[in-house]
């Protein structure tokens, strides 16, 4: 008789970094697109920006763009992305040379939908709008590269 095989792990002994979650999000985006249309994707991602990232919005509102720069830097470093962050006058500019999410999807042969980068577009917009800022994100689908810009809304 074989002894049972046991694996016993504690959370503190491990690094929380499950990149396959990018794949699940990719399927979610495609599912919403196909079942409900493009507006559902933007509605859902706006909701994510407004709820999941509410505390980031609050920090941006209070402290300006620095918390956002720190957040993006942390995420990109954590996932081994290639990127640059700079300032152009009053704008925060993020140039992503290699998106770690898309790299992972490609490397592991998972689904990649060209609409995946809309996650960045809509979540950034929702975070910024709530804080009184604006954003843009230009990308070519499938390239794993984009340019994100952030700036304060001018008072009307």
């Amino acid at each position: 008789m074989a002894e049972p095989r046991v694996l016993d792990r504690q959370a503190k002994d491990q690094l929380y970094l499950h990149r396959d979650f990018h794949g699940a999000l990719c399927y979610a985006i495609r599912y919403l697109d196909e079942r409900f249309g493009a507006q559902a994707v933007s509605e859902y991602l706006t909701r994510v920006g407004e709820t999941v990232f509410a505390s980031l919005s609050d920090r941006i509102q209070r402290q300006g763009l620095e918390p956002l720069a720190e957040h993006i830097q942390h995420v990109m470093e954590q996932e081994n992305g290639r990127f640059q962050i700079s300032r152009e006058n009053d704008k925060l500019v993020v140039v992503v040379h290699e998106c770690p999410a898309i790299s992972h999807l490609r490397r592991t042969g998972q689904l990649y939908t060209e609409r995946f980068c809309e996650t960045t577009v809509w979540v950034n917009q929702a975070i910024c709008r709530r804080a009184g800022y604006s954003s843009s994100c230009t990308y070519l689908p499938g390239q794993g590269r984009c340019v994100q810009k952030f700036w304060r809304e001018k008072a009307p």
Partner: peptide, 17 residues
């Protein structure tokens, strides 16, 4: 990009949506 470390709350929000 939504980091994979931020996916779970986004997943929960998807169910809510």
């Amino acid at each position: 990009m939504i980091s994979c470390t931020e996916f779970i709350p986004a997943y929960s929000e998807l169910f809510g949506y």
